[in-house]
Nucleic acid binder design. Structure first.
Lengths: 196, 196
DNA sequence: TCATGAATAGACCGTTCGGTCTAGTCTTTC
DNA sequence: GAAAGACTAGACCGAACGGTCTATTCATGA
């Protein structure tokens, strides 16, 4: 069985994750996934008995672990939270630039656009919380108090989601790169808080 | 002709805007729109010759003017930008709470999920820019410099988009309400910027 | 070497999709 | 009150959808 990286199952997951994110779950036909992954229908229903929704779940999980990997890559070697956050934003910007079509943010995409079942929805929420907790964990690892860490993780998450949306609207990742500096950099600290 | 608020055409637009936002463009069938609005198919293709995509455009425009109205309601009577932004966040939170199903942010929803045509995409981008510009206009009206106004408007937009996403993931509008205070309030100024 | 289950392969099915078309009904205007 | 166009009404269409099913091939252990 071996489950190599290029196994039928993994190919299906990777292709599905990509297409679902690019065009959305409902806008992506199984036939397109199958054609792109070069997999016949029978194989899909062998590996994913529940069909499309099953595939969506797998794709979401796969994406989540990818995101966590990116977070770890950014935060583990970082001397402090701000540096980690900056690196993360840059990594995400790079990810954004990789795609020809400006797709939805991977974090939110696979969670909100999927089968309508409540079970999928619940799974998505749990996954989202897991990502937020992971971010908070890194913050705490840098010596922040639990409350502080949670708050900062949340702020960063908001900024990333919003930043990605703006980047997508403009088809330009610049916002994402500016994000970290706006949040933590020496420059403007979100709003200069000048006149008001 | 009269074009009353409850005219067939307006009913179609309102229902489409709601459903598209709740379930997404591709996940919403014309039959559902038609049934909900109590409109036969023939009427739809009379008012919107290009069918579903045409309807999506109209729904997006209709939503955009709604959003602008909300912005005006928040900013016109406000003594300064921070107050206006706070009011806006609260209004959006209220809007969020209105829906049983936690739907996508109206600003981004109707822009990103629609027909795949490039023309729709372009129209969406233009609409998005229009909203951003409108926000910046309000900021400038409060005496901020153009650069400042643009920057603040962008920050607010990022925060709203990201905040809505988080609110949606948690099915709780609290994040949106906390948003304004985090950005401009006397309390925590985004990150306390303490230890790091 | 052969038996067995995993995996592949794709023809096929019922449903629903967005869209077309013709017929009928109002509404407005001479 | 008849002509004309705006609008409503829904039967109908081909295409594509997700999903099922049977046949076949491949891999593995006895």
């Amino acid at each position: 069985m071996m489950q190599s990286d290029r196994s039928t199952k993994n190919r299906l997951i990777a292709v599905a994750a990509l297409l679902f994110r690019q065009k959305g779950y409902h806008a992506t036909g199984l036939s397109e996934v199958l054609a792109t992954a070069q997999v016949p229908k029978g194989s899909l229903y062998h590996h994913f008995p529940d069909g499309k929704s099953d595939l969506a779940r797998a794709a979401a999980d796969w994406t989540a672990t990818q995101i966590i990997q990116i977070m770890d890559d950014a935060f583990v070697p970082a001397p402090d939270f701000a540096t980690g956050a900056t690196t993360l934003c840059y990594k995400l910007a790079k990810l954004f630039d990789l795609q020809t079509t400006a797709a939805t943010c991977p974090i939110s995409a696979l969670l909100f656009d999927g089968p309508e079942s409540e079970s999928f929805r619940a799974h998505a929420e749990a996954t989202f919380d897991r990502l937020a907790a992971h971010l908070a964990h890194h913050a705490q690892r840098q010596g922040l108090s639990e409350a502080d860490a949670t708050a900062r993780a949340e702020t960063l998450l908001i900024a990333i989601e919003g930043g990605w949306t703006l980047a997508r609207a403009r088809r330009d990742s610049a916002v994402l790169r500016r994000l970290a500096q706006s949040l933590f950099g020496a420059g403007l600290r979100i709003p200069p808080a000048a006149p008001m």
